[in-house]
Write a protein that binds this DNA or RNA. Structure first.
Lengths: 357, 357
DNA sequence: ATGAAAGCGCTAACAC
DNA sequence: GTGTTAGCGCTTTCAT
């Protein structure tokens, strides 16, 4: 390994001078000296040794990315991409650890981070959720992404505004004239399901549109990560009714995909017979189904970038301006929703009569 | 930061002894001393300093994960998961860098790896491809995953056997009695497309089944990463013919999804009217569509694990037993393929007559 | 504007 | 079995 001393010898200066050049301390150097050193660096292929730097400065210039499963799962890769993109304009590198949500592994991961002298960590969860109150953090800067820690209000976090997203998804159908709207829910164990679900109800209520109980069905059942899709059966049943919804809001895009299968198999046209709104803008689905899916995009990339910005700021000593950020979702309009010219209000009445068997 | 000396002071031994305990040099220590030291470590919350260790040993115990986009893309996350799972039984940690396929960024990444004293690197590409001959590698252990480097035959690589996968996919339909089979190809710029495509042809030829030219269509056109799906139109056209295929082999699962949309919209039942075989086992599609998709799974997780095993072996001084590995794909049978009791051979004849307009 | 000395935390080599 | 000495490559402090 070529060190600062080798460079110094070749350039005919002291090692301290090389150090100054390498760390860009351009002010206290004659341009001529600088050039000489730069040439020697080039010639020898010198690269600074981070371990040595760290020993002196006790800063590693490494950030930890601790995730439950997010880095190994297709759904929230945009968070990671946002993080890595933002990292490029900083001197930091990323050490990645997946805990699979296992607390023991998480504890070991924190220790590994300490061993590496990590400067700060991005703690990212796959599902938007609240961390258990028992969650402990070491005393280094941490930014939470896609989760919040009620027990640690001083920790900055960045989450999507699932409530508003759910509201806007339903509002979109309403604005397009739909009045008979079904909702196929996410796994009930997930915070996002709660938020999006109650937003759906509120959006309908705000327009004085009835939310029919039998049109609100689960799309996914079972424990998280071991869940099973049931949207297909449930939506098939609903769409077979003579009086059926003209629009469906889905808890995510995979559920929307099951709705597509159900509707198409029944010979229904999308969007003319049923309009469908998804959630997540999971492009492998939303941009591939035909017609393309109108869906609510999660602001994952932005969340990742903001997290890096926040963390790097903290490391510079700048506390975040906003401690807790809720990022707005964005509706991506494609082709699965059409205008519904619903008949006069009174035709809704018979529909209501069918609620109870 | 609590160091080895603090522990030594508390335990009343020399620092060298603490070092021995910390690095598990259990042989040359009295159990009593060991216990004493362990207690002090626990009490002080001592954690070894990797930077210092590295300076002495010039091994960082960090592996570099260099990818074009794989870590930020939903399709090949299983490679990363395989890597991380395998890493757990080793002392290594992972430093991740995404180059977005930009050669300048790639050059900078190698330098970053050198700065960190990376022990070895996993070089992973999203698409199975050959690296350009201009690709340079530094002189540290590197294992290539999902790509090969014709210019560097001494470098170990691990790729999927796309040819055999393509062959087996077609063979599956053949074995189920299908004789009228269409093929919807991947983007032609990709190596996997070549391999899978020619395998399709060979599989049909081996059974003396004709591959109709108008039934071999692209599913995806345009430059990689800027491509557009055209499977829907193409398959719709084919399925509208009076004489239509009873089975379709798809270049990947997204193409299969477009086939689903096309078939269902035409009122065709899957698998009874058309059987469909996908490729990739991209579960967000294959396990969500209804009926569930029969598809050829890429051995990504295994490839990732093997890569780690190989690299760690090299670092121990064990050269890989097999330098270049082609991993076999595995057919996942679900519900999109059914037995086809094709009529007597001669009914194929009129079909052939319709080839030319 | 440049150099010399000291020391960060650890382990290899050797002494006892 | 355990302690001592030295030095990895760098930056901080102080001197010149």
């Amino acid at each position: 390994m070529v060190s600062i001393k080798d460079v110094a010898a070749l350039a005919g200066v002291s090692d301290r001078t090389v150090s100054r050049v390498a760390s860009g301390d351009t002010k206290l150097l004659r341009p001529r000296t600088r050039k000489k050193v730069l040439k020697a660096i080039e010639e020898l292929g010198y690269v600074p040794n981070r371990a040595a730097q760290m020993m002196r400065t006790s800063r590693s210039l490494v950030l930890g990315l601790m995730t439950d499963v997010v880095a190994t799962t297709p759904f929230s890769t945009d968070i990671v991409r946002g993080i890595q993109d933002a990292l490029e304009s900083t001197p930091y590198t990323l050490l990645t650890i997946n805990t699979s949500g296992d607390p023991a592994k998480e504890a070991r991961s924190w220790q590994t981070f300490r061993e590496h002298g990590i400067d700060g960590v991005l703690y990212v969860t796959m599902f938007h959720r609240q961390l258990p109150v028992t969650t402990q953090f070491p005393s280094i800067p941490v930014v939470l992404v896609n989760c919040s820690a009620p027990a640690h209000p001083e920790r900055p976090y960045i989450v999507p505004d699932d409530y508003r997203g759910g509201y806007d998804a339903a509002a979109h159908l309403l604005a397009k004239g739909h009045r008979k709207i079904a909702y196929v829910a996410l796994n009930e164990h997930i915070l996002a399901a709660d938020l999006r679900g109650s937003a759906f109800l509120d959006a309908l209520a705000a327009e004085r549109v009835e939310a029919r109980g039998d049109w609100i069905v689960p799309g996914l059942v079972g424990d998280v990560f071991k869940d099973r899709f049931v949207a297909f059966e449930n939506v098939t049943r609903i769409l077979k009714q003579a009086d059926r919804p003209t629009g469906i809001v889905c808890g995510n895009d995979e559920i929307a995909l099951q709705c597509y299968c159900a509707a198409l198999e029944l010979g229904l046209k999308i969007p003319d017979d049923v309009s469908i709104v998804g959630f997540d803008d999971f492009q492998a689905v939303s941009n591939v189904v035909e017609p393309k899916l109108t869906t609510m995009a999660l602001p994952y990339h932005e969340m990742g970038s903001l997290a890096v910005e926040t963390l790097v700021g903290m490391l510079k000593g700048t506390p975040p301006k906003v401690l807790h950020t809720k990022y707005r979702c964005k509706l991506i309009e494609r082709a699965s929703v059409c205008q519904q010219n619903h008949p006069a209000e009174d035709t809704d009445l018979p529909a209501r009569l069918t609620i109870e068997p």
